[in-house]
Write a protein that binds this DNA or RNA. Structure first.
Length: 481
RNA sequence: AGUGCUGUAGGCAAAUUGGUUAAGCCACCUGUCUUUCAAGUAGGCGAUCGCGGGUUCAAAUCCCGUCAGCACUACCA
């Protein structure tokens, strides 16, 4: 039997980080098993679904590296299938028309709440007489279709992550709505989520449903639907949720939750995918944490997925991201950095200055945590002028600094092309000549060159500045001041 | 309110399924390197395994009880 799993996003917003994590787990499982990873867009709620979100979700999954084998399929194009299923349920007497109005239902729930009871439908229209039905029809009331849930039924399944699960029918909130109120003259309206999911999973021969634990209650309802429709019940695996710092389910309200947000903050897809898989899963040897999707796929099994929810930890994500940035070659990293520099308005030509930019990338790479850090890390190395911070300013105002700079300016005139060795030699020479400590020269030079007292390696920075003639303009401005 | 799930250091987590001082990573602290910072490297601090009983020579692991957190209870997905 070939394993077939799916990710079923709903296009009611941009790709959410929780959806991305579920997608990662599904992808890893499919690849580990040599199975198929399928995408199905659950857009049955037409009022909330939008094409731009679908686009965003698909692009996001692609960007993460989660290539799929089938789809994307769209539920909105498969409505007939669901309608047939609803009709089947009706024909078999497993579903019925409920004429309750939203107001009546609301009243019922409030009454239940007042009595301190769990809210749920009381199945009041399950056994309507033909006369009652006729009355409602003539009143012009349009029915929803409800699927009968046997309160005495005990539903079991063996969850691949949580083990034995058990649910009682009477705790499912009453007979469930599977089709909405019809808009026009149809016999029933838009089929709903739980039904569509089951119909699709049956039809697409999904073997393993891997999803978040917020779907546990749905599972019991869906199993009943599988039985009613005569489908083979797949395996279920409910992963823990991603929690915010307060320990609640991460939601849009927490601000940064869409994959785009993470992308814009300077995280690379490899790092995000890596962190996502670590949220709940541990490799067999339990010590390795840096994995590409392909590496993890070789080791991924559901029984090593943890059951407890995991709080999202920015520090850890940052660290993982830095690991990827640090081992990336400058030739590749530079292309990721260029947009940030452009955005910052730095002075360069992405083609003409490419080799210079690659060199710059090599210098600042070790200090990058996020791509966006490149702006601050390289700020001191762009432009013919500089801005001094307090410490830098204090340094160049010290006795003898201008003379040192003048000597250096004289020296570099002899070096149209200056190497690191040349730079060191110049420093050595000036130190001797001015009879000062080498540390003083270095510190002053750093201040005169970058305006600050700390930053990337001084020699390398200088060589870089020299190649664009900015060391001369910068030092000269101090000498002239 | 019901139902379900979960509970190991600040965070992520492991523990060959009862057996020596409860792994590892992030964060934090320190040394080292670089005459700067970061990175790297070496080391360190931090947990009476939610709590209370019980079984046992031995329990994070088994049993009973208890508490807490979260999720779900839509004509959303």
């Amino acid at each position: 039997m070939t394993v077939r799993v799916r990710i079923a996003p709903s296009p009611t917003g941009n790709l959410h980080i929780g959806t991305a994590r579920t997608a990662v787990f599904n992808w890893l499982y499919a690849r580990h098993q040599g199975g198929k990873f399928i995408i199905r867009v659950e857009d049955t709620d037409i009022s909330r679904s939008r094409d731009e979100y679908t686009d965003n979700i698909l692009k996001g999954l692609e960007w993460l590296g989660l290539n799929w084998d089938e789809g994307p399929f769209f539920q909105s194009q498969r409505l007939d299938l669901y309608r047939q299923a609803v009709q089947t349920l009706l024909d078999k007497g497993l579903a019925y028309r409920c004429y309750c109005t939203p107001e009546e239902l609301e009243q019922m729930r409030e009454a239940q709440k007042a009595r301190n009871e769990a809210p749920g439908y009381d199945n009041r229209h399950r056994n309507l007489t033909p006369e009652q039905r006729e009355t409602y029809e003539t009143e012009g009331r349009k029915p929803v279709i409800r699927f009968i849930i046997d309160g005495d039924r005990q539903i079991f399944w063996q969850d691949k992550i949580r083990g034995k699960m058990s649910w009682k029918g009477s705790d499912l909130g009453g007979d469930m709505v599977v089709a909405r109120t019809p808009e026009g003259d149809e016999p029933f309206g838009q089929p709903l989520y739980n039904l569509a999911v089951v119909v699709d999973d049956m039809e697409m021969k999904i073997t393993h449903v891997i999803r978040g634990e917020d779907h546990i209650a749905n599972t019991a309802k869906q199993i009943l639907l599988y039985e009613a429709l005569g489908g083979e019940i797949p395996e279920f695996a409910h992963s823990p949720l991603i929690l915010n710092t307060e320990g609640r389910k991460l939601s849009k309200r927490d601000g940064v939750t869409s994959l785009d947000d993470f992308k814009n903050m300077g995280f690379v897809p490899e790092a995000i995918a890596n962190y996502m898989m670590l949220l709940g899963w541990t490799a067999p040897d339990s010590t390795q944490e840096i994995f590409t999707l392909e590496e993890a796929a070789k080791l991924f099994t559901l029984d090593r997925v943890n059951k407890a929810g995991a709080k999202f930890d920015w520090d850890k994500l940052d660290w993982i991201n830095s690991q990827y940035l640090h081992k990336m070659s400058p030739e590749i990293l530079v292309d990721l950095l260029i947009p940030y520099w452009q955005n910052a308005g730095y002075e360069f030509n992405s083609e003409g200055d490419r080799s210079w930019l690659i060199e710059l990338t090599g210098i600042i790479a070790p200090s990058l945590t996020r791509l966006s850090d490149a702006v601050a890390e390289s700020r001191l190395l762009f432009g013919d002028s500089i801005i001094f911070d307090d410490k830098g300013q204090a340094q160049i105002e010290q006795e003898g600094v201008k003379e040192i700079f003048a000597a250096i300016l004289t020296a570099i005139a002899d070096y149209p092309e200056m190497t690191s060795e040349d730079a060191k030699a110049i420093i050595q020479q000036v130190t001797k000549e001015k009879k000062v400590k080498k540390g003083f020269v270095m510190k002053s030079l750093r201040a005169g060159l970058t305006g600050e007292l700390q930053g990337p390696d001084l020699i390398q920075s200088w060589v870089l500045l020299h190649r664009r003639g900015w060391d001369k303009t910068r030092l000269q401005s101090t000498v002239d001041s």
